[in-house]
Amino acid sequence: MADDSSPDRAGTLSPPPDAADLELYRSMLLARRMAEKTRQLWTDGGVHGPGHLSDGHEAISVGVAACLREGDATIGTYRGHAHALARGADPEAVLRELLGREGGVCDAKGGSMHITSVEHGYFGSYAIVGAHLPIACGLAWAQRLKGEGNVTVCFFGDGATNIGAFHEAVNLAAVWQLPLIFCCENNLYMEYTPITAVTPVRHPAADRASAYGLDRVVVDGNDVEAVRDVIAERVQRARKGDGPSIVEAMTYRLRGHSLADPAAYRPEAEVQEWARKEPVGRYRTVLSERDVPAEELDGVEREVSELVDEVAERALAAPSPQGETAMTDVWADGGSAWRS
């Protein structure tokens, strides 16, 4: 599996360190610390129910978000916390949602698998594999009709490429020339099963792109600048009306599929190899090599850790939602009545 990480495109070397680099670093750290905090809250019993974290995947959500502007849409899976945060969702509202508290970003109704922040252009996390790919087509269609040059990025896992909805959505996007980037986060596994065990091609998304007349694009998904650069090019095309793309970003989860999964099915050597390639530490090394002083990087880390500790404290102090709220928001009028 070693050469799976070798990208078709490498990140272009940026000019001397600037604020944008530090922002990428800060944003990845925020996702990482939030994942670590969530795992801790789950271990302590505060987070209840399933939870799918993105530690190891941060370079993808952050690299993509760096290419987007207000009016662009993103949409993702149950593994969606990092995607919401990367677009600017409030970390405290996210943690309140995970803890099932008042003020959760989805009013404690969605929970971990449905983190959504429409105000930040993140149209939600969907837990039926493949379902949101056709939905992304609709978001992009609306953008195309509005004609403002906005685009949609749809995130999904390697496993989603084997469900019919993937093929229907990519075909439709290609036929309608939608401003849509399908971004596959290939972490080599579905839940417990390696994607290669159930897929006849090596790159489950990219190798199928040609069937829909699209380019084969594979990128090192643990290299935040490589992701940003590849996505930026695809976003540019989409904004100009040159249609959709598929980008397959190679990555690896640092831990199990979900909080409850010890991930015993992964070979130790593979886990070790990918641990060395994890995106946050790796980007710190890149920035150090660009002569960003260690104190500056430490400062960012401290700031993010403090922020996450503070929001967690406040979220833990928040009350449970009022029971009546279970009966709100089925309908546009705010209620749930279905009969007279």
Partner: peptide, 16 residues
């Protein structure tokens, strides 16, 4: 059960 999608938070699930 109540005629709503099942909410995630434990207190809300108990409610419906």
């Amino acid at each position: 059960g109540a005629s709503v999608p099942l909410p995630a938070a434990g207190v809300l699930e108990e409610e419906v």
